[in-house]
Simulated assay, not measured.
Amino acid sequence: MYGSNAHNTYAQNNVGIESPAKLIEMLYEGVLRFNAQAKKAIKDKDVEKKVYWTNRSIAIIVELLTVLDRSEGSVGAYLDGLYNYQIQLLTTASSQSDSDKLDEVSNVFKGLLEAWRETT
């Protein structure tokens, strides 16, 4: 009960601060920032930071999945699959310290960010 009330209060207090389109842009940018931090942690052989930053990226993608409008037909279904695949890549990148997988995810999100900016 408390969690729901806290969320509602938070949502009411933050209505109008940013447009939904700007929030999606910020989430995409967040994935890129966190992936860069995770890549640095892999290079530095800092396991704790690698896991932390990778988990932050995954949390953003989970949020994107949560707000995804699947009623939009093929675009919603495509993004659902794409986001889930990016989570798989990030999980592998973290468990195997694989910078190439992080780069793959970052490239996808760079493309999504560019496309998003063009449509808004």
Rank of each mutant, 00 (worst) to 15 (best):
M1L: 08
M1R: 11
G3S: 05
S4K: 05
S4F: 11
N5Q: 10
T9K: 11
Y10S: 08
Q12L: 05
N13E: 03
N14Y: 03
V15A: 06
G16W: 02
G16A: 00
I17M: 07
S19W: 05
P20A: 03
A21S: 08
A21M: 12
K22C: 15
L23T: 08
I24Q: 02
E25D: 06
M26F: 14
M26E: 10
E29D: 09
V31A: 07
L32V: 09
N35A: 12
Q37Y: 05
A38C: 04
K39Q: 01
K40S: 02
A41K: 00
I42E: 00
K45W: 03
K45Q: 04
D46N: 08
E48S: 12
K50P: 08
N55M: 02
R56K: 15
S57T: 11
S57Q: 04
A59N: 11
I60H: 00
I60V: 05
I61C: 01
V62E: 07
E63F: 09
E63D: 10
L64A: 03
T66K: 15
V67A: 09
L68H: 06
R70P: 14
R70N: 11
R70C: 10
S71V: 04
S71H: 14
G73C: 07
G73T: 10
V75G: 04
G76R: 00
A77Q: 14
Y78K: 07
L79I: 07
N84P: 02
Y85D: 11
Y85G: 02
Q86I: 06
L90D: 00
L90K: 01
S94E: 01
S95H: 00
Q96M: 06
S97L: 11
D98L: 00
S99T: 12
S99R: 14
D100V: 11
K101H: 02
K101S: 01
V105I: 13
N107A: 09
N107W: 09
V108T: 12
V108C: 10
F109D: 01
K110E: 15
G111N: 11
L112C: 13
L112D: 09
L113D: 00
E114C: 15
E114D: 13
W116M: 10
E118W: 06
E118P: 09
E118M: 15
T119P: 10
T120I: 13
